[in-house]
Design a protein around this nucleic acid. Structure first.
Length: 530
RNA sequence: GGCGGGGUAGCUCAGCCUGGUAGAGCAAGCGGCUCAUAAUCGCUGUGUCGCCGGUUCAAGUCCGGCCCUCGCUACCA
């Protein structure tokens, strides 16, 4: 079995109880674009997303809504989470839910294995407990009362220290191994700032951590195979989705096992910086404990800021993806967030900025260029792509710029630098617009003697657009497929999804004679919103 | 408190590692062009580069101190 390994990309699994907002969509889009780019390099890929569905909160809201937890999460997944994937045009290969059998089986097997190898042991967890909430509280969530007293933030009543019997994972044993791993693999946590935080956290020394909860406190979870009074604590259930989804634990010789062998380890695991520690400390320690390879890169991206603050429901700054997509379309949504925010840093979102960038770069830039080219081929050549005459210096210079742009974009994608890749692509669009203005094909068309030159210029424009379509296809698959069709490319070059990144830089692949059509604007100019 | 980001043009940001007295895009103004989605192309920036001090012939750029802001500092996503 030496089948090639897939380039494996994951998003976090989203907590079903949350309302999907553009922050979730941002992560998913990033994963989708990264995957599509690698797919267009001709690599085998696998892109996973899904939902995290266990825990107290889900259990409680289900009860509040008068339904069983399973019914509740089924409803949320079908009405909220899966539709978002359609909205943003995600091309995930799979969708994992933590309440499904394939996940639960894998989780049980995983922890059973760790228990057998002595890495899980029984002990007591002690923490602040609120009787009103009937649950343990986080020290950081408590509010100060009189003296040393701590109060429950919900009930305002004093919490009491309570003990609970739990199973613990020997996290402490991995302190040095994790530090050593990150020393040897600086690319394993990106960006650098995220890596620093994780390393300084680990350097404090790790402590063993409770990986289960008593059923009488949290019933909505995956039971421990060896202790029916305990369920797996949500994080130690959720993290495992990345391997259960691709067949972890499947028997040798099965297709599932095959999938696992050719997919794990993940190449890029995208996470929001708020859940970095779980992914860069607990998760790799768990994998080490199970003798599995570690993900190559965990990339923590920043938050979307609205009005300078982290988006939040309580401040009513949570924005649903549809709000944007309904007006601008999924392609523009995808383009905007990846283009205007340095991946890894926090980024400001504003409707004004979105609108401005849409009009400047998509409508006036790329879209208008497509209009110019297709309109002129129709006007001057009856819609038939002309055969170019001898190339002049300006044409050759543009061809060189294309080669450079493809290289820049490809290298940027290797760094998971979406903004860099799109900047390179935009640079080429600008170069082509300038080329058109300087070559003045509309003047050439006025004199029959210039017909050969006109043909060359028109061909160059369309061929440049072919490359532009490929370069932007991972980000804007819908409109680039349209553009591909307008150029008459499908009949000769096949679907755009099959066009490789490398072929974008090979000049002259679009054969003269194709039918070029004008069509509606790819990105119509839009009025200000809000 | 400790650690880590960030503080640069009206807005969003790059530059700082490898010092040479400041850049991009957007917005605004003027001009060119007319194939195109009133689009495109060119020209136009007097900014205390958070503050103070130091090193240097020369400092957003290196060093020290300070201020503001965001985040991390163990079992909440």
């Amino acid at each position: 079995m030496s089948e090639s390994k897939s380039f494996y990309v994951t998003t976090p699994i989203y907590y079903v109880n949350d309302a999907p907002h553009i922050g979730h969509a941002y992560t998913t889009v990033a994963g989708d674009v990264l995957t599509r780019w690698h797919r267009q390099r001709g690599e085998k890929t696998w892109f996973l997303t899904g939902t995290d569905e266990h825990g107290t909160k889900v259990e409680r809201t289900a009860r509040d809504n008068g339904v069983e937890p399973q019914e509740w999460v089924d409803r949320l997944v079908e009405t909220a989470w899966k539709p978002v994937l359609e909205t943003i045009d995600a091309s995930n290969d799979d969708f994992i839910r933590t309440t499904t059998g394939r996940h639960a089986t894998g989780v049980g097997a995983f922890w059973e294995q760790l228990r057998e190898s002595g890495q899980v042991y029984e002990s007591e967890f002690e923490g602040p407990y609120c009787v009103g909430c009937e649950e343990f509280k986080l020290p950081g969530d408590l509010i100060d009362g009189e003296g040393d007293e701590k109060l429950c933030p919900i009930h305002g009543t004093p919490v009491e220290m309570l003990k609970e019997r739990n199973w613990f994972f020997r996290l402490e044993d991995y302190t040095d191994r994790l530090l050593e791993h990150y020393r040897q693999h600086p690319e394993a946590i990106q960006p650098q700032s995220a890596r620093n935080e994780v390393i300084s956290f680990i350097k404090q020394g790790l402590r063993d951590i409770s990986m289960s909860r008593a059923v009488h406190n949290v019933a909505w979870g995956i039971p421990l195979p060896w202790d029916d009074e305990q369920v797996v604590y949500v994080w130690f259930d959720a993290l495992l989705n990345y391997i259960t989804a691709i067949g972890y634990g499947a028997r040798e010789g099965t297709p599932e096992r095959d999938r696992f062998d050719t997919t794990w380890p993940a190449d890029v695991q995208l996470v929001g910086k708020d859940i970095l520690r779980f992914h860069a400390v607990y998760w790799p320690a768990m994998l080490m404990a199970a003798g599995l390879p570690l993900p190559k890169t965990v990339f923590a991206h920043g938050w979307l800021l609205v009005g300078g603050e982290k988006m939040s429901k309580s401040k009513l700054t949570g924005i649903a993806p549809e709000q944007i997509v309904d007006h601008f379309g999924s392609d523009a949504f995808r383009y905007y967030f990846l283009r205007s925010i340095q991946f890894g840093a926090d980024g400001s979102f504003s409707w004004e900025d979105l609108n401005a960038r849409y009009n400047a770069e998509l409508a006036n830039g790329l879209g208008n260029l497509a209009s110019r080219a297709t309109a002129m081929v129709n006007k001057y050549c009856d819609g038939v792509l002309p055969e170019p005459d001898a190339y002049a210096n300006a044409d050759l210079a543009l061809q060189d710029e294309l080669v450079a742009a493809v290289e820049l974009a490809d290298a940027a994608m290797d760094r998971i630098d979406f903004a860099g890749a799109l900047a390179a692509a935009k640079g080429f669009v600008d170069a082509v617009n300038l080329y058109v203005t300087e070559q003045e094909p509309w003047k050439l068309a006025k004199d029959e003697a210039n017909a050969p030159r006109l043909r060359t210029v028109l061909y160059t424009m369309c061929e440049a657009l072919r490359a532009i379509a490929i370069l932007h296809n991972p980000v804007m698959p819908k409109s680039m497929a349209l553009l591909w069709g307008r150029l008459g490319a499908p009949a000769h070059l096949g679907p755009i999804a099959d066009a490789t990144v490398a072929s974008a830089g090979h000049w002259g692949l679009l054969p003269p004679g194709t039918m070029v059509t004008k069509g509606d604007s790819l990105f119509p100019r839009l009025e200000e919103v809000e």
